Amino acid sequence: MYRILAAIGTDEERAVEQARAIADLPRNGDVAVTLFHDFADDNPEGASVQQVAAVRRAAELLEDEDIEVDYAESSGDAVRAVLETADDIGADLLCLAPRKRSPTGKAIFGSVTQQVILEADRPVLVVGADGAGE
C-alpha cells in the first residue's frame, strides 16, 4: 500500500488540484490518502476535518478514482503536525499546495510548505505553486 499525506487548507481549488495530481500519479498497487487539515492555533467551534469544504471536495474526487481516503487533523504548529502525522501513518509521499505569497510575505510570515520541504525525510509533491486558486 502506497500512503500519501495530503495537507489540505481551506481553498477548494487548491484541494481539487492536489486530489487530481494524486489521482494522476502512476499506480502500481493500492493507494491510500490521508487528508490532513490543521486548524491553526485552535478550533473554538470544535469542527472536524470532514467539515472543511476543501477536504470534502478532495475526498470526493479521490474516492471517485477508487483511492482509499482517511482523515487526520491538528491544531497548532502546522509544520510539526504535518511531519508527525506523516511519521504516524508511514507516509511514502507528502502532497502540499502552497498559498501564493510575495517574497516579503514569505520572509516575514514564513512558509509551511518551504519548512516541510526542508525538514521532510520523504518526497514532497508541491501542487499549484504558481498560486492558482488565490
Rank of each mutant, 00 (worst) to 15 (best):
N28I: 11
G110E: 02
R20Q: 14
D88Q: 02
E84N: 00
A15K: 09
A23H: 06
S48Q: 12
C95F: 06
D87C: 03
A19R: 03
L94M: 06
R57T: 03
T34I: 04
L94G: 02
Q115I: 03
T85H: 13
D88Y: 01
I22E: 04
D87K: 06
E65W: 01
S48P: 04
D77N: 15
E12Q: 07
D41Y: 02
I67K: 13
A32E: 15
Q50L: 07
Q115P: 04
V31G: 08
G76C: 13
N43L: 11
A78F: 00
V52M: 06
A58E: 07
D66Q: 13
I8F: 08
E65T: 02
A23F: 05
K100D: 10
A54S: 15
K106D: 01
I117C: 11
T113N: 08
D42V: 04
E68F: 06
D11S: 03
D42S: 13
Q18P: 04
A97C: 08
L25I: 04
P44L: 05
A54Y: 14
G29Q: 13
A86T: 03
A21D: 14
R14M: 03
G46D: 08
A78S: 13
F36K: 00
F109I: 01
P103G: 09
L93A: 01
A120T: 11
N43E: 12
E17Q: 14
D88N: 14
